[in-house]
Design a binder for these strands. Structure first.
Length: 270
DNA sequence: ATGCCTCAGCTCCTGAGA
């Protein structure tokens, strides 16, 4: 089965591109079974449930006016949907989770953080700590867990087009990376790095300065899979093609393929 | 360079993003 995440920077603007992309994935191979979306920038009453239903997807959305907003699309039913981090009061719609098959899927839009030392950076740190504590519980309840979304954090210099120039700037600070590693320490794995990748493998490029054409990007969108799922992963890649669209999102989707058959037939012979 | 795009909205400017 195939799972993906994409920060689409306004679903109102990007809905046709999302539908096109899903169609394209089906046409060239396996359909995307689960898609996590971030930065919907719309309220739930404006969520295009019907358009996705016609494309074969059920949806769980958690929207908000103007900013943030996340959703999960799935070809199969979702249950136990939760919104944001339980026990962490937050005005912003950033997390949506669901049981899908025998997976626990968490889609997240991590805080940007703006600038080290700012109040928004402090909020990012608090949010990251709350996420870690909650995921620790979630993993104990369901070891088959996927955490994917716009993390707004790079793992290391390999994720940064100009590591020297951007050293210690937002998305690249030690504090953010320590938090990201603390998620990894829960028993999660950076799925992209499990497979060979192209050079300059980024998921976001600034709209300004022709950054995409100049390959000046960051890898800040991630798919983390739990230890139990790691042996089942068959591919994970960033698809930069939608970034070449006429009115693109500044982010590209990240796709994970896992061996769903072996999940379904676990314990049965052949 | 307090800039450069893009998006939403109490829309002809501002805040936020990354």
């Amino acid at each position: 089965m195939k799972l993906a995440t994409w920060n689409i920077n306004s679903l109102t603007v990007r809905l046709p591109q999302v539908l096109d992309w899903l169609q394209g994935q089906s046409a060239t191979g396996e359909p995307v079974d689960v898609l996590a979306l971030q930065e919907l920038k719309l309220t739930d009453d404006k969520f295009p449930l019907n358009a996705f239903a016609e494309a074969g997807y059920q949806a769980a959305c958690f929207g908000q006016k103007t900013y943030n907003g996340v959703a999960l699309l799935s070809r199969t039913p979702m249950s136990n949907v939760t919104r944001n981090i339980p026990g962490f009061p937050d005005d912003m719609a950033r997390v949506i989770s669901a049981d899908i098959g025998d997976l626990r899927v968490v889609g997240a839009y991590f805080p940007n953080g703006q600038e080290p030392g700012s109040e928004k950076f402090a909020y990012k740190m608090r949010w990251l700590e709350a996420l870690r504590a909650w995921l620790c519980e979630e993993l104990s309840k369901n070891p088959r867990l996927v955490l994917m979304g716009d993390f707004n954090i790079t793992f290391d210099d390999l994720d940064v087009w100009d590591p020297l120039g951007l050293k210690d700037t937002i998305h690249c600070t030690e504090q953010e990376r320590v938090h990201l590693q603390s998620l990894i320490s829960l028993g999660l794995n950076d799925a992209v790095r499990l497979f060979p990748q192209p050079e300059k493998n980024y998921s976001w490029w600034d709209y300004r300065n022709m950054a995409f054409r100049r390959k000046q990007g960051l890898r800040i969108d991630h798919v983390l899979i739990s230890d139990a799922l790691k042996p089942l992963a068959v591919e994970c890649f960033i698809d930069p093609k939608p970034r070449r669209n006429e009115r693109p999102s500044d982010h590209a989707p990240v796709v994970l393929g896992i061996n769903g058959k072996s999940l379904a037939t676990l314990g049965s012979p052949k």
